[in-house]
Design a protein around this nucleic acid. Sequence first.
DNA 1: GAGTGTAGAGAATCATCGTTCTCATTGCAA
DNA 2: TTGCAATGAGAACGATGATTCTCTACACTC
Lengths: 186, 186
Amino acid sequence: MTTEKIADRIVATADRLYYERGFTAVGMAELRDAAGVSLRRLYMEFPAKDAIVRAVLEKRHREWSESVEARMAEVDTPRDRLLAVYDYLADWFCDHDFRGCGFINAFGELGGEDPEVRRIVREHKESFQRRLAEITTALGAPPLLAAQLALLAEGAQTTAAIAETAEAAGQARAAAEVLIDHALGV
Amino acid sequence: MTTEKIADRIVATADRLYYERGFTAVGMAELRDAAGVSLRRLYMEFPAKDAIVRAVLEKRHREWSESVEARMAEVDTPRDRLLAVYDYLADWFCDHDFRGCGFINAFGELGGEDPEVRRIVREHKESFQRRLAEITTALGAPPLLAAQLALLAEGAQTTAAIAETAEAAGQARAAAEVLIDHALGV
DNA sequence: GAGTGTAGAGAATCATCGTTCTCATTGCAA
DNA sequence: TTGCAATGAGAACGATGATTCTCTACACTC
């Protein structure tokens, strides 16, 4: 296996473990076992645990963006593209191992001590909001709408995780429809 | 100082430290120093760190409920009571040391391993939503509205923490107005 | 086939954490 | 004053974590 493949497997394994149980709760020895590599190899691929955490967050950012983009690409109008976000959330919330937004979790757990984590999480959320703003602009709605739709998505993620139900996605979608229509003066 | 006062001071100190930096990042020795008690006294008041974490979350729940309730009591109509939530958030977000919702942070950091933390966080959020539902009912609006207003509040808290701006409160308030009016058929 | 470098397995190291223990001190009761 | 219980200060303990080191085995070069 090439060295990138190994790094990828480490990151994928770390992502799963960190997301399930938290960053601090999962040690390097457990990651080594789960990824099926030696400790030495772990430290050959990444200089320290921090670097793995960052790589995990960056991978998660790419995957989130791709998944949302794929959902949006399935529909034809800007309005439906905005609503596609909540349909994606509805599916995600049904995942057996859904445990909230990994970035919010990272922010809560590590953000107090690690400015780099804060930066990555902030950029992730900014990028999502920018994408929504592109679409609201295409709709002819103000950027305020994009910010509000983002609030609904954030709230739905934490609420679904904590309540352990998927219903927040549908509630957010319904609210989004009202806000969109109102912003368009319907 | 009486033993309850000491326990209170320990909990208040722990709350501040845990909220600022995270639960795992703050050890018992640091808490001992900051609270100005002996390690022995710490363990006389609480059997283990878990118990302090739980006491912190329970105190935070009482304070949140009281603060929101106080804001609601300042206004006269159910509609204004709902909107008072976002005014409270707007003030809170301006706090120099605001770092998001302590319950969401606890859920992200400890929820993966500690079912008791999950339970406390879930009950906190349920209680908030129940309170909103009482008011939407008084307004003659369906429970769906309460859930949607809660999503906005949750989203605003995480967004304000991550973006390090207070503007999410105003955005959520404006969205809430639209949703309330729509629910009432205005 | 001998020699060299690379990597795996896991022991060793060093720090830190939660928790308990020791012991000297203090406040108080008889 | 003497004896006793309670407490503070902090050392000790056992576990665990991140990181590094050792040593062995194997693959590849000449």
